[in-house]
Each structure stands twice: as structure tokens, then as C-alpha cells.
């Protein structure tokens, strides 16, 4: 698993990860937060329903898709945390209100 190195210089924001409010450093990506919070997987695949997690962290593999502020299929590794952001693990194709990408 992953951990975040101690660092007191950084400002934080509140995000809601899978229903739980957490304080996280500003300027980090959702994927980095999910991993450092101990999530091992962040979605399941629509085809075989197997677990996946961020793989490339640079926006090219699309394995980090999560539901962010109600929108499915968002790449967590290129999405930066914002105050009050709602982040959830995605099951398959996610909620239908998400934009197909």
C-alpha cells in the first residue's frame, strides 16, 4: 500500500471519499489521495467485474476511472482535489448520469 510522507507546510482541503470526510493536501490528484488513504482498488471493470487501481498516474491508461462529484468515468490521476469534492469508487460503468467517454 501507499502512504503520504509527513509534510506540514501544505494547505489542506476537505473531500468526501466513499462517504467519509477527510482532510487532504491541496494540489494533489484524486488518485494520489485514494492510494494514500489505503484504497487498494478504485473501480471494477464493466466486463469481468474485476478490481482495478491507478496504473500509469499520467492520464494514459484509464484504469483510475472514478465517480467524481456524481460524474462517472473521471480519470482520478488527472483530476485535482477541490474543497467539498465527492469521490467514489466506480462499479463497472458507474451511475448512468456520468458522461460516456
Amino acid at each position: 500500500m501507499f502512504k503520504q510522507l509527513a509534510n506540514d507546510e501544505i494547505e489542506t482541503v476537505t473531500v468526501i471519499l466513499n462517504g467519509q470526510e477527510i482532510q487532504v493536501p491541496k494540489g494533489t490528484t484524486v488518485a494520489a489521495i485514494a492510494l494514500s488513504q489505503g484504497l487498494r482498488s478504485t473501480r471494477t471493470t464493466p466486463i469481468s467485474n474485476t478490481k482495478r487501481a491507478p496504473f500509469c498516474m499520467m492520464g494514459v491508461c484509464y484504469d483510475c476511472l472514478m465517480v467524481i462529484d456524481g460524474k462517472a468515468n473521471q480519470r482520478a490521476c488527472v483530476t485535482y482535489v477541490e474543497q467539498g469534492m465527492q469521490v467514489e469508487c466506480q462499479q463497472g460503468t458507474g451511475p448512468s448520469l456520468g458522461d460516456a467517454q
Binding site: 501507499f2 493536501p25 494533489t28 490528484t29 494520489a32 498516474m57 499520467m58
Partner: peptide, 14 residues
């Protein structure tokens, strides 16, 4: 590369 990005941009390591 993902490991490096995690460290550079977020200070996150295994």
C-alpha cells in the same frame, strides 16, 4: 513512472 509521479507531486510512496 507512476511511482515517480506519486512522489514528486504528492509525496506518496509505498
Amino acid at each position: 513512472g507512476a511511482g515517480q509521479i506519486l512522489f514528486k507531486s504528492a509525496g506518496v510512496v509505498p
